[in-house]
Design a protein around this nucleic acid. Structure first.
Lengths: 142, 142
DNA sequence: GAGTTATTGCGACTGAGTCTCGATAGCTGC
DNA sequence: GCAGCTATCGAGACTCAGTCGCAATAACTC
């Protein structure tokens, strides 16, 4: 979905230094199909002996989230997770069985938000739509 | 929005014991206009010397969330919060200035979700829409 | 190649949420 | 009203995610 080079390029383009831990994390993130937690990355980095520490994982995820390369996600379990994605406004649908996630454009939702704004009198600044269910693969497996 | 008696009745109806801490929390929750965190309730309970401890606050919120009297909410800051609400499917719009929250029915969103399901092939089990912005009062104050 | 400084690792720390366990107090049945 | 059963509570230790401060390191720049 997003490859390591894209992540590295984005970091470089934004003026961040290309360090070994950042390259390593870019690789880990790219190798993940779906969502992942900070703990996942940390565990994986330990397993592969990449020598990336806890603080660095969190700091890097912060940077990547700022750049929009990665997006924060709240799982129904209450965990905080991330997904790699293109930096345009969109939402995610997450498979509750395999964890895979797919980007969804929000056409249609804008209209719903606008109607809600009109009905309630609120000025809506941001919205977040998270969908959870079974992906096609897991559906046919079931 | 939701009064203490409603919360107490719901607990009783579901076969839970009506204890002093639960009554106290029902009162605190009812007195809150918008969303609140477990920490808010804990602080308020200490201030009013209600003698409700941390573990009890969390346990009670779990119960109330199971009953659908209270709903979990993830604030953009990453904090976990709750809102008291009617136990029917709906969403919340939260004022980022005063914290007030309003329930929003999801007519229109169902159609969006159905379209997304069709486009992606996912079977959508749950969805969560969270809207953040300025409520009418805060808008006119600004 | 030297200098500047962003970034890292380390390790201590914080704060939310959980768990255990003995004590307490609601409810039920009499 | 009282006794007994047991759900619930309080206390406090514990866990785990995430943060912070600081000295050491290593990317870039010139």
């Amino acid at each position: 979905m997003v490859d390591a080079a894209t992540i590295v390029d984005a970091l470089e383009g934004a003026g961040y230094r290309l360090t070994a831990p950042r390259r390593a994390l870019a690789g880990l993130i790219a190798s993940r199909g779906g969502h992942f937690t900070a703990e996942n990355l940390l565990g994986e980095s330990r397993r592969r002996r990449l020598g990336v520490t806890r603080a660095t994982v969190f700091r890097s995820l912060d940077v990547l989230a700022d750049l929009g390369i990665v997006e924060r996600l709240d799982l129904p379990s209450g965990e905080h997770a991330f997904v790699a994605c293109e930096p345009v406004h969109h939402h995610h649908i997450v498979c509750s069985s395999c964890g895979r996630s797919t980007e969804v454009e929000d056409s249609g939702l804008e209209a719903v938000a606008a109607r809600i704004a009109r009905d309630t009198g609120y000025r809506i600044d941001t919205h977040r739509l998270e969908l959870f269910g079974l992906c096609p693969t897991c559906r046919s497996a079931a």
